[in-house]
């Protein structure tokens, strides 16, 4: 169950310092995707999974949990949001409303 590959990515520090930060994703089941629930500190992946269960799933919130070292996440930046998402802005032909169909005909 534990993804041990992630353990190497986040070596624990001494007890004086802070343990590595992990991001927690939970799926409630029903085929729905894992969603970000929050973050927590833990020494390794297994510890992070157990903490995630106790901190974020005390009331059957999920049937599956992912924990990911926060340092392993690459995110887009707010500064670049304009240029980064620009390619999607002018492509109306990707939407069904762009296309005509005869009046009165139900296409879907």
């Amino acid at each position: 169950m534990t993804n041990h590959d992630a353990t190497d990515a986040a070596p624990p520090s001494s007890t004086d310092g802070e343990w590595p930060l992990w991001e927690v994703f939970i799926t409630p089941g029903d085929g729905r995707p894992h969603e970000h629930a929050g973050s927590l500190h833990a020494v390794d992946a297994e510890h992070a999974l157990e903490n995630a269960r106790d901190v974020y799933a005390r009331r059957n919130e999920g049937i599956g949990i992912w924990v990911v070292p926060s340092s392993a996440i690459t995110a887009s930046t707010p500064e670049d949001v304009g240029s980064f998402f620009d390619p999607a802005n002018d492509k109306v032909y990707r939407h069904p409303q762009f296309y005509k169909s005869p009046r009165g005909v139900k296409v879907f």
């Binding site: 041990h4 353990t7 190497d8 070596p11 624990p12 520090s13 001494s14 007890t15 343990w19 020494v43 390794d44 297994e46 510890h47």
Partner: peptide, 19 residues
């Protein structure tokens, strides 16, 4: 709680070496 935190770190270190 210090010993619990120390034990968690020691266990994680040991696991990493074992793996």
């Amino acid at each position: 709680g210090e010993w619990v935190r120390a034990a968690a770190v020691a266990h994680a270190d040991k696991e990493r070496v074992r793996l």
